[in-house]
Nucleic acid binder design. Sequence first.
DNA 1: GCAATATGACCTTTGGGTAAGTTACCTCAG
DNA 2: CTGAGGTAACTTACCCAAAGGTCATATTGC
Lengths: 214, 214
Amino acid sequence: MPRATSGMRANAGTKGVPRADREGQIVRAACEVFGTEGFAGTSVAAVAARAGISKPLVYQYFGSKEGLFSACLHHGGAILAEEMERIASGDTVGLERGLLTLNGIFRILEPQPWLWRLFFDPSAPREGEIAAAIKEHTERITTLAVEGVGELLRLQGDDDPLDIDAMTRVWMSIFDALVTWWLDHPDESPAAMTERCLRLFTAVLSADVPVLQP
Amino acid sequence: MPRATSGMRANAGTKGVPRADREGQIVRAACEVFGTEGFAGTSVAAVAARAGISKPLVYQYFGSKEGLFSACLHHGGAILAEEMERIASGDTVGLERGLLTLNGIFRILEPQPWLWRLFFDPSAPREGEIAAAIKEHTERITTLAVEGVGELLRLQGDDDPLDIDAMTRVWMSIFDALVTWWLDHPDESPAAMTERCLRLFTAVLSADVPVLQP
DNA sequence: GCAATATGACCTTTGGGTAAGTTACCTCAG
DNA sequence: CTGAGGTAACTTACCCAAAGGTCATATTGC
């Protein structure tokens, strides 16, 4: 349902903000509220208030709460995927590529950290349009991460697809943890943050491999 | 508010299930629903149905939806913290202790994986009794994690408190990712899960340390 | 006049919470 | 032993505020 200005002369006969612009405002506001309060915890009225407009306009443009959430998923998913694809198109590999991606995602997520949470919301509907959108975008993002992580694991002689899948999830959640930590320590400069990450990586990497005996 | 049978002769004059037992049943059902649907996504009626009783009984025993959720947090928090403390009291250190902890938690979580999610619910109230309960139990767990992580980093010659703090967050988030992944792959046994983790740790640890040049 | 933007007022459902009553078992006076 | 009264366990039926969703209407540029 959510459509940008289409067929006709763009922006013909209008009093207020053109639909495409307004849709953008609403979606950005909605991403913030959905991402911080969760799908079930968010009311459409709250989103409207946040966007500075009235509830019916949201329904006029997005049809339903689910339609609005779906638009948010497409908005956030595109932003994240494009950045990751940009970095993936470079020629770095292994953990170095990991650090580069981390850096890029940091920059993208810094002003809007809640985007990430849209895709991991337990209170989101698990069937229908929303489930499909979540699946579509997590798969798109995950595909890129899987590519990098798979490369790394294969380099170490592990090519179990489930291992790669799990490791990808771990890798992605590390992003979340580091960004969240950063937001809680705003006096930290990006450079210092990157250094810190490298230090932590180094420390963990130089630890001894444990032996198993449960 | 939730109290076991107290003062009087235990279980005097009763028709149905004794209160303490019933409370246990309700809390277990509630943990499952809250943990899978999120706080905002859960209705008390749904919990009552799951527990096989009526809604007012829930209110009679727990006072409110928040009271019920709070009881769940204490129930789950105690279970998790006790297991982690048990392992912390052993004498393993570094990554080995990390793996042991993972193994223990996986075993605990196998029949009730949703317990973990209670403490990372974005739709849960962020003030009042619930916020306090979440804080109390996550801090109890975090303290243990900080202990283990700090030990690991100091072994590698890093004793920056901020590094330890950040690394703890990363570690717990790794933990979270692995548990979440597991929730999506329920046919995996705890033992298999632990093996997988060991395999992943090993692979990553034997990778080369990256060089910085952004 | 027509089309696009925008809203106040309204309808309907959901869900947290409650009032009041019912059932079964216990105790104890007669 | 028995039945009246007490109490814990439990439910049906309800209230009401909040939230999803809709409608009629206002405003303005072409």
